[in-house]
Write a protein that binds this DNA or RNA. Sequence first.
DNA 1: TATGAATGAGCGTTCATTCAT
DNA 2: TATGAATGAACGCTCATTCAT
Lengths: 190, 190, 190, 190
Amino acid sequence: MDKKERIVQAAIDVFKENGIERTKVSDIVKAAGIAQGTYYLYFSSKLSVMPAIAEELVNTLVKKLEKNVDKKGRFAKQLEDIIVTVYDNLREYRKLHALVYAGLASTEHLREWEEIYEPFYAWMTLRLEEAQRNEMIGEHVEPSSSARLVIGIIESSAEQAYLHAAPPEEEIDKQKRALLQFVQHALHVT
Amino acid sequence: MDKKERIVQAAIDVFKENGIERTKVSDIVKAAGIAQGTYYLYFSSKLSVMPAIAEELVNTLVKKLEKNVDKKGRFAKQLEDIIVTVYDNLREYRKLHALVYAGLASTEHLREWEEIYEPFYAWMTLRLEEAQRNEMIGEHVEPSSSARLVIGIIESSAEQAYLHAAPPEEEIDKQKRALLQFVQHALHVT
Amino acid sequence: MDKKERIVQAAIDVFKENGIERTKVSDIVKAAGIAQGTYYLYFSSKLSVMPAIAEELVNTLVKKLEKNVDKKGRFAKQLEDIIVTVYDNLREYRKLHALVYAGLASTEHLREWEEIYEPFYAWMTLRLEEAQRNEMIGEHVEPSSSARLVIGIIESSAEQAYLHAAPPEEEIDKQKRALLQFVQHALHVT
Amino acid sequence: MDKKERIVQAAIDVFKENGIERTKVSDIVKAAGIAQGTYYLYFSSKLSVMPAIAEELVNTLVKKLEKNVDKKGRFAKQLEDIIVTVYDNLREYRKLHALVYAGLASTEHLREWEEIYEPFYAWMTLRLEEAQRNEMIGEHVEPSSSARLVIGIIESSAEQAYLHAAPPEEEIDKQKRALLQFVQHALHVT
DNA sequence: TATGAATGAGCGTTCATTCAT
DNA sequence: TATGAATGAACGCTCATTCAT
């Protein structure tokens, strides 16, 4: 019922489908079931919906992680589940992911990117801190900066994986394993 | 004299300056010193110049690496120089980098991305292979997949660093050091 | 106030003046006193206004015929008035007539031509039927197909007449008389 | 081998295929197997080839008539063969016919139309004169003006017939018979 | 004569945004 | 708040024509 929320959801749907350039405001409002003018009561321009979309995407991802990752388990297992979750998420939103980033880049909203990613960084930092407390990763690891590095490498690896329309599943698996090992060594996961 | 090359260079300049949306084909041809129609003799659309730009960017980066990285030196030093080079390069081309990626994403050229990155991957793979031969990194490291991971983490880290218009230099340095350590541990650099 | 009607009228005016190729959509909307984009709310392309123009032209002609032809008079006189009316009409709209036909031919609207001409055919058929009822034309005449033939010969004759920019009036008159006689014999007008 | 002739033939082919607007000079020269610039050695503009095309079309038609119409036969039979020939010819060149007319109309070449049609008019006039000498048509018939009228009605009738993409053959036949009778009555064919 | 790369004026169309209701 | 018809600036692309070779 909340109009703003409906607009964001509709925008996610049509951007995901058509990309930025080929998406018209008229497509968004049609999908949202509202009038063209109404859009501008909630967002000042076509692209100004982007930060809201990005926020939604990150929140969705964090929710998925909360669901898929067993915080009580061994860190190696947590890491594996994180990787699987990020990969799956990116596969679904790959196109949109690039578009949102580009959409923010086109405007002056780009610096909000970090802020939007904050919940993801924070979540990962907490995982690392707890793992360190439980001596499941090396003492030298600095949780906050490592969180950013871990997120960065998982996402860039997933992007490489899903660049191709239909990569063979075993290739993906091989990549995931290499990634897991790489991160485990980096963090001295025991 | 080579028209195609002049177009690519001009496109790099104006895209870097103005972004994609605000760049008109007329801007590109003006910068290249050719007629509007001539552009379409070499590229079929505004965005179809993107792969050529990407290629140019990667080649430029590899040249810089060749110049800045001492292949005879210790691997730890090489790694540091690679990081510094990639960071510097991204600072200069940050905007363009995102734009090219988005530009490829808008069209169906995205899958060419991997192919375009190939020279960078190949170069890095060679470095890792040699380091392994010289026992400067762990035996368990698989050069080819690790090359992709290393490149991915360096670039994503650099992107995070330069997201803000004017990040404090010491913050950048701290990040670089964390990154270096992360990769060194991952590769068991001795 | 009806926008669509205003567009059609404006299009008739500027096409008549300049021909198809030299008419820009911007000319039409300027003449209609509306914005460029508004045109595309009513017609999907520059040429898609053509059928509407053709319809208007035929309706105008039928109105003129209704006015100039005395249905109560002898058929020979009616025929003469029809010829004069069609000639006069074609003189005014000669250029446009060819253009509309060509405009329809360029698109896939050509088959609508018959449909658009229908009012004219119907009117002429009625004239022939009544004349036959009153025994002013031969019994052998089949009104419907003859109507098409009569209209065809009058128009093609008029086109030949006004092919030249300024044909001498007596030449035109001679042609009209030859045409009248031709049709009278064909129909056995008494 | 004659370049000019090859251009005209190529132009006929591509105009017939694509219409005027969608035909580019580059299409014509490609079909003619010559270079772009060469076209302009023979014709001053894209449309200035039109009169030559029209001439070719008329000459082709007259040749067909010479072949199909038995000058020694009864006039009624001649008329029938003329009708059949014109119908067949128009079916093949229907699209081009309208286009050439429109092409001439767009430029200032339109007045050449009569001149181009002259061979057809002359041929028909000869037929009527001979028929009159042999007392196969009425004395009142004036051959020259009647020739124009007969040609006009046959062509307009054929145009009506082939307006539809695929008209039923029996409908066409019915139309031809009505046309034949109409003209026979008009000329008092015995 | 012949070539075909280069030209650049020109235009149809799109679509984000506005505003009277 | 909500509407959606109207706006009009903006631009990618085409293609007839030219001209140096």
